[in-house]
Design a protein around this nucleic acid. Structure first.
Lengths: 246, 246
DNA sequence: CGGAAGATTGAGAGTTCTCAATGCCTGTGG
DNA sequence: CCACAGGCATTGAGAACTCTCAATCTTCCG
């Protein structure tokens, strides 16, 4: 079983986790072995179920292998704010080793496969300087993404916000070998989009319609098709610098 | 000179940097020595001047010793979005060791003293596991703050946003030994507040007035006075968990 | 076929914005 | 000591964007 998982990663140099971490630096074979061991315990979440909840102090660190998840918080009056989308290769909660308690929740968006990595194994991981650096790098990129979202929410109108998020997700998915040149699968409802962008689902609907009418992009059947990517980036003021891609 | 700086830190167990990092774990004397060396080169920024600019790949890592600074980005049409306020004890750009290029700018808000820490010295720092962990911890807390700001922008109205920010700054300043029980100095204009909260300065003004009229807090002469802290926290839905204070 | 979730559309309400004028405070030069 | 300029705060009025409520439509699935 362990060998099987190693085979899985080694046979697949385009594995999202590898592709993501090697945005930072190429990993030596020993580190890749250790990464393979991190993929030994993969569990499936059927639908929209929580992976971890606020206040938890989980036994495992979680890593998205397949499908999507999101970080979110619920405010007093029950509204949800999504603060990140997690796609294959993204750690859900590596920070739990340092901080102890979750200050937000993470939920699967549709069917997702998630690696459960024991704290013991994570302790091994952080003894490898190269892997530690790769993890730190990933967490710094996450921080850059958060800042970009803040700029998006604070300073762009609804249409540009949607456009910017689509540009970002497209770039991130491409960087881990998913999605096509001008299209990608996005298992979100319009309500999810609204909860990520601070907009109502009704308004998301109108904005998406206008983007479609203007020939920039379409979103239906959980699929984004970007018709004019340059115009979309222009509209959104999208500059991928903050993703620190190679 | 070096000895002088050591004296500065050792004689002052309430130094913001120490107080901040020891939220995570008490540091052994060797680590405190190294921290002292990080404070050897302190420079003063007179007024609202940039400390680093987007695109820079600076020679030094910067740390706020005294006064305030902010992270910010400028969007295409010239608007500014502030993505963090930095107070004494906060690192401006520790991530530069990993990421290379700044994806945002940092500017001083009024007079500020900033420690310049060479990359060589930072290399020494990250060889100490305890300090590395402390730095990592600090950067994870920053991430938590960013998520909280996102929730604030996405899901709270203008009044609650201002209230939440004030509660956060109050808690953060208290944790590094600054500010009083229900008051603190805040060298921001109403425009700065707006740029941090995604609101126009005009609206900030009206909201602050209403908070004053309701007997919750006042803001004048660069000074916040919180009159009813429980009501303010209640209003803002403020839960300090995300700050991971001791 | 029925039910449920999600998408779509209309209409009116609310929050926040922009523009523009005025007031206040502080530092500087005469 | 006074006048003045500049930066910031304050207020009013109307415009713009986004929201809520509510109805209808579509799609998918048992």
């Amino acid at each position: 079983m362990l060998m099987l998982q190693r085979a899985l990663l080694d046979a697949n140099p385009a594995h999202p986790l590898l592709m993501k971490l090697e945005q930072h630096a190429t990993l030596p074979p020993e580190d890749r072995d250790l990464l393979s061991r991190m993929l030994a315990d993969i569990r499936t979440f059927d639908g929209r179920r929580d992976i971890i909840r606020v206040g938890d102090n989980p036994e495992f660190v979680h890593l998205v292998i397949d499908g999507w998840a999101c970080r979110y918080s619920i405010v007093d009056d029950g509204q949800r704010q999504i603060t990140a989308f997690l796609v294959p290769g993204d750690f859900c909660d590596a920070h739990i080793i340092m901080l102890g308690q979750m200050d937000h929740s993470i939920g699967a968006l549709g069917q997702a496969r998630v690696a459960f990595i024991s704290k013991d194994l994570m302790a091994e991981v952080v003894e490898r300087p190269g892997l530690t650096r790769a993890l730190w790098w990933a967490s710094l990129v996450d921080e850059g993404v958060l800042r970009a979202w803040l700029v998006n929410m604070g300073r762009r109108d609804a249409s540009d916000r949607v456009a910017h998020l689509v540009c970002e997700l497209h770039a991130r998915l491409l960087s881990v070998g998913m999605g096509g040149n001008n299209t990608f699968e996005m298992p979100l409802t319009q309500e999810d989009l609204g909860d990520a962008l601070g907009l109502s689902p009704v308004h998301i609907n109108r904005v998406v319609r206008r983007l479609r009418e203007r020939g920039l992009m379409t979103f239906s059947n959980r699929k984004i098709v970007i018709q004019d990517i340059e115009a979309l980036k222009q509209e959104a003021g999208f500059n991928p610098r903050y993703l620190h891609l190679k």
